[in-house]
Structures are given as C-alpha cells and as structure tokens.
Design a protein around this nucleic acid. Structure first.
Lengths: 200, 200, 200, 200
DNA sequence: TATGAATGAGAATTCATTCAT
DNA sequence: CATGAATGAATTCTCATTCAT
C-alpha cells in the first residue's frame, strides 16, 4: 500500500500520531474522538494525518495491528521460557495482564476495537487477533500431544474462554478505580482455574 | 424517568421501536445506526421515537436494561433448579449461551454496549450488569460455605473470568458463520473447566 | 372568518388561551414560545388551540388586535376628558404609560410584535396600530386648527415621535428592574417636552 | 472571545458573511433567516460560517456590536462639530437618521435586535446601546451645566425619549415605501421639538 | 512534506399542525 | 367540542476530508 511507504519517511511523526490516537481513542472512544484532536495532541496539522493514514478508520486499524504485533511478540517470548504447556498458560496469563497494566490506553483501545463488532469485526478480517488467540490454541494442542491436557478438551474453546476471562478481568481493571485484588492475583487465579480445569 | 410513564400508554409502539432498534443496532452498530432507519423499521415517524425515548442514547440504554432484566430473570430461574453450587455454574453457562442463541441481535447489542467502554461504561452506572455478574459471585460464595469450592478462590475473579469466557465464546458465535462445535459443547466445556478449576 | 364564529362559542377558553399566550410570549418571545406551552398554561390540549386560532401567527395577531382595541378605547376615553389639545397630549402620555404599567406582559408582547418588523410589519397591514398612532395625529391637527400648535409642525412626525418616545420609555420600564424615576415622572416630562416643543 | 481572533485571519470572509447576514436578516428577520442562505449569499460553504461565528446568535450579536461601533463613532464625530448643546442635539438627530438612510438593512437589523426584547435584551448585556443612548444624556447634562437646558429635565428621560422618537421615525422610513416628507424634515422637526421642549 | 481554511454531506432533533378517537 | 399521540418537514451544526499555498 502506498501509504505504508510513507511510514518509513518520517517514522517519528507516524508514531506521534499513533500515540496521540491511542490517548484520544482511550479517552473518548473511536466515534467520539475527533481527528483534529488527535492532530492537536500529536502536534501536527489536521491535513498531516492524511499523509500517514488513509482515513480515521485506518488510524484505528494501524493502531490495532501495531499493538497486536507487540503483544504477540511479548507474549510469545514469555511463553517460550518454559517447556511445560500448563506452565505456558500461566505465563500467557501473566504476560497478557502485565501488558494491560503497562499500557492501559492501548488496552482499552484494543478492547473497544475488538468489541465494536459491527464496523470492525464484520468488515475487517482480524488476522492478528486470531494469531494471538491461537497462541493459546497451540499450547493446548501441545499439551494434549504430551498427554498433559485432556484429549476431549477443545482447543478452540479453551483459547476463547481463556482470552475472554483475561480480557473481562482487564476491562474491570481499566475501568475501575478501586481494586480489591492485584492484577497478579487475578493472573494467578485465572491460570490456576484453567490449568486445573483442563489438566489430564 | 418521566418517559417511562409513556411505556404504559402504547406499549406496542414502545416495543416496536425497541425491537427495530435491536435489529438496526445489531446490523449497523450504534454509531452507524440512523434514528430514521429505526423509525422506518418500526413503522413509525421519526418524531414518534422521541415520544418514547429521550434521544438515541436512551434507546440503547433502555434496550440494555430491558434485555438485562430478562437475562437476569431467566438465568436466575435456571440456576435455582439445583442445589449443588457446582451444578449451578453449569446451569448458568447453559442458560447464558442459550439466551445468546435465541436472540443473537440482542446479544450483539448488549455486547456492543458493554464494551463501548467510553461512552457507556464510563458515564452510565451499569447496575444491571453488576447484578448479573454477581449471580456467579453468589454461587461461588455459597460453594465455599459448603466446602465445595476452594476457600482461596476469589469470587470476584471467578465471576469476571466465567462471564468473560462465555461472552467471548458468544461473540465468536454471533460473528462467525461457520462453527466447528455447537454452542452446547462450548457451554459444557467451559463449565467443566471452571468446575474442575475451582472445586475443592 | 369561520374561526371568529368559534370565539363566540366558548369565550372563556378563547380568553384563557389568549392570556396564556400573553404570558408565554412575554416570557419567551414569539419564536421561542411553544404552542404546547401555551396550551399547558391555558389548561387545554394542544389541539384545542387550533379550534380557536388558525395557527401560531394568528394567536399573536389576535392578541395584538384585542390588546390594541382596549388600548385605543382607554386612551380615547382619557383624551376626551379635556378640550385643550395640548392637555390632551398629556392625557395620552399618562394613559399610555399607565396601560403599560398595568399590563406589562401585554405591553411587551405588543412591542415585540410591532418591532418584529419583517414577519409582521411587512406582511400584516397593521391598521389598529395606525389608528392608535393617529389619535395623536388628530389631536395635533385639532391644535393647529385652534392655533395652539404651530402650523409648520407635521402631525405625522409628531405622532411617531411621541409614540416612539413613550414606547422606548416603556421598554426601559418593562426590561429594567431598578428604576430611577417613576413612570409618572416620565409621562409628565415627555408630555412637557412635546407640548413646549410644538406649542404656538 | 476566541473567535474574534479569526476575524484577523481572513477579514474579507468575515465581512462577507456579516454583510450577507445583514441582507438576509433584513429580508427575512432573524428567526426566518436560514444559515444556509447567509452562506450562499456570502459565497461560502455552510460550515465556513462556523469558522467565523460560534452560532447563528453570534452572527446577530457581532453584527450589532460592529454596527453600533460605527454608529457611535459617526454620531460622536457629528456632535463634536459644535459647542452649543442644543445644536448638538440637532446634529445627533441628523446623524442618526442619515445613518439609517445610508444603511437601511443594518438599521432594520439593529432595530429588530434591539426590540427582540426577550432573547437578546434579556440575556445579553447591551452595553453598546447604553453607550449610544448616553451620548444624548451627556449633551443634556452639559446643557444643564451651561444653564441652557432646564434643570428639572431628567437626562435619562430625554435620552430615551429622543432616541425612541428618532427610532420610531426610522422604522416608518424603513418599512414604508411612500413617504410624505423627507428624512431631513423629520430630523429637523424632531430636534426642534426637543430643543424647544427642554430649553431653559 | 506540511499546513489549516474551507468544504458540504449528513444526522439528530424539534415542534407546529392534524385527525382518529 | 376536546384531546393528545402521531406526524414529518425543516434546520442547525459537526467534522472527516481535501487542496491551494
């Protein structure tokens, strides 16, 4: 895509816009965010946005894809530290929630996008998200191959259930101000439920 | 709310608008839905919408509250059929996913709203949703009292994790056309994971 | 006009609407007044208004014509108490300002209408107002015939100037809360200026 | 006001919109004027209006303030040509009516605004108008100090009465097509009435 | 490249008026 | 006569996007 070439030209500006967009989308939501507000927050002119992105939707998509790339890398790395599939699930949960904690705005934006079912989930083939989900799927299949996870467990259900559990927990985290327990507690508990739940 | 009084006057029209709104919101998403399209679909004039609802937001809120009322009633009823707390969780999962299957449009709209973090989750105190979540919380506390669920399990984590797991599963259901396994399989598997995961 | 017949049928309702309209127009101005607010204030249904008036404009016109009829009668009566044309001018000023003082809402509405140049002054032939203005014109011509008012004085200028002076004074009266001098002082001063100004 | 800064950027466009607004408001009245008509008449897009003005009300307010600034300057200048307070009143009257004659549209709009008692006179502190009125007040006080105007004359009454007289005369001028006497005759007669009326 | 003034399509909402009851 | 729910035309204002500079 021609615009991708531009990303290479002034990467600082591209990043500035993307980071401004994260903040504005997190604050206002995609539909209530104004392109001019993103421009102001990025310190560029309104028109400049369109030198780096095709339109407002494209900002969100790019945001999401860039974000997911980092998330996938980080989580893959965390998971690769152990060979025990059950332990890998724990690592996944910890890494996922740690990412949320480190970048709440990004977390919120990704959640909004993932959930804005209509516009984005319907029109846009969300490969990155499926790739992410399937990290869990792979772990489950590996565990089943090693006989550590019950054979009747559906990897496709586990991946969605675990992701959903972590995601709902993180939404609570992002939106709530008062928190009864730490995000670590949540990570430990949720991975514990799933490990016990699916272990052979 | 003063407008609620009107619901009593011509309940058919109130319901017609609400049901049209469910379909339109499910099809287009809240922000891309046009009030005039809801009116057309409901068979009323644009202005009539405003005799029953304060504004477009109010349609969504009303939709959500009415929907949650039904969901809470149905799930409460399903759960009350057994005394075994672990079994209750299974009933919860089945009932939740059955509701999704029976009214996909409503399911999608509720999910959109729940996730539109910004506008709705931030500004609108979402009591109905917390009430729903806490059905699970109560079951867990009951199970702990009976010694059937481990005491170190956090009810607040379980309720969000289980809800998140079911919800993510149902999003997949709603959005995807091709389905590898039935919604019943998903309900059984997810409740099985959690039951094993938290049982004493 | 067919509607005029209706005025005869339930004169209380006709008057109730008119009086409600005076209050609402005075409070909000014609364009910001809502027909439904007039209806509520009159204690009738929205639709009932249209049994007594053709439309919103017609309420204002009727209001004005009824009001001017009273004003003309009252002022004519006051003026007829003396034979001295100069003294008549003083009576006119006193009566005009007294009317304002007695019915501020009506005064304000009449002023609004008189001044809403465009819609009403252009489209609607304002006979009543000219009749009122010409009470002054007649007095001036009578005074000139009796040699008490200078012959070079233009009655058409005097009538507009005196009316304008009184009207501006009354606007001040209606809109201002703190008043340095009484409305009587104003009446005396203004008539004094004009009497000296035009006397032979 | 922040928008005033914009006036400096493209003053031609600001003026074009203002002048279009004068014509449209004069033709249709404020409430019947359409923003899109002003835009068309100014040769700009609808949205452009909102780069220079906050909303429709703001156009009228700006119009009024700009207009009054000119009026005040012109009249002040005219009045300063003589030292005789009574003669100053004549200059005031001539200058006022000459302004009306030169810019009938503006005159009509200012009158509409001044008289739209409700919306504008009540909510908007009309300093410019009071400043204008008080030019007359100052002249009267000066005349009293010099012993040329009777001491019992209330400057506050004279200023409103003279302004009202001129204003009513000019409304007649603006609205009427057939005119029995020239605007100069009116100016001379009215100033003559007041000069005789208040002279010592 | 970068700007930001200008554009104009588009949408929510209002409210005078009607008419079935 | 009276009602008030329903209508739908009409209008302001917003904001993503463009393009001349």
């Amino acid at each position: 895509m021609s615009l991708n070439a531009l990303k290479q030209k002034k990467p600082e500006k591209y990043r500035a816009i993307l980071e401004a967009a994260i903040r504005v989308f997190a604050r206002k939501g995609f539909y209530n965010a104004r392109v001019s507000e993103i421009a102001r927050e990025a310190g560029v002119a309104d028109g400049t946005i369109y030198l780096y992105f095709q339109n407002k939707d494209d900002i969100l998509i790019s945001l999401f894809e860039e974000g997911m790339k980092t998330v996938i890398e980080t989580v893959r790395e965390a998971v690769s530290r152990t060979n025990d599939p059950l332990e890998k699930l724990r690592c996944f949960a910890r890494a996922h929630l740690a990412l949320i904690e480190n970048d709440k705005d990004m977390a919120e934006v990704i959640q909004v996008e993932l959930r804005q079912s209509t516009k984005f989930m319907k029109e846009y083939k969300n490969d990155k998200f499926f790739e992410y989900l399937d990290i869990i799927g792979e772990i489950v299949r590996e565990g089943q191959a090693k006989g550590m996870i019950r054979a009747d467990v559906e990897p496709g259900v586990v991946k969605r259930a675990l992701f959903g559990a972590l995601d709902e927990m993180s939404r609570f985290w992002v939106l709530s101000s008062k928190r009864k327990y730490s995000i670590n507690t949540a990570a430990e508990q949720i991975s514990e439920f799933f490990i016990r739940g699916i272990a052979a």
